[in-house]
Design a protein around this nucleic acid. Sequence first.
DNA 1: CATCTGACAGACG
DNA 2: TCGTCTGCCAGAT
Length: 116
Amino acid sequence: MEENKIPTYYQLVYAVTRLIPKGRVTTYGAIADFLALGSSRMTGWALNQQRGDVPAHRVVNRKGELSGRHRFATPTLMQELLEYEGVKVEDAKVVDFDQLFWSPAAELGDDWEFLG
DNA sequence: CATCTGACAGACG
DNA sequence: TCGTCTGCCAGAT
């Protein structure tokens, strides 16, 4: 068995976030539920400590709103990054959010190979 | 050690 | 549909 170097939940959040396909988005709650963090707020906290190598711009709240845009270098960076990937954003909200939503639980299922 | 806040989400009226 | 309250956990003061 691999070392039980169980990454902290922060790292788990980063790992899942990196798996979000370009041009797709997911929610804090979806990640929290998938990782069984017990609280969707933990996802936000984890991303708040994010180092910059994580596509946190692909994580929005359940309404599809870019609630974390102010945590980026500039308030518009999050939207710009999304639009650059083909995700339309209007009034701080993802257009066709329901259609672009990427569920880690549904896409990854029981496959935790992404942990390495 | 007590209290508040936060990149959320669900329940209620 | 909207505003408000509560639960959740960790970090800051």
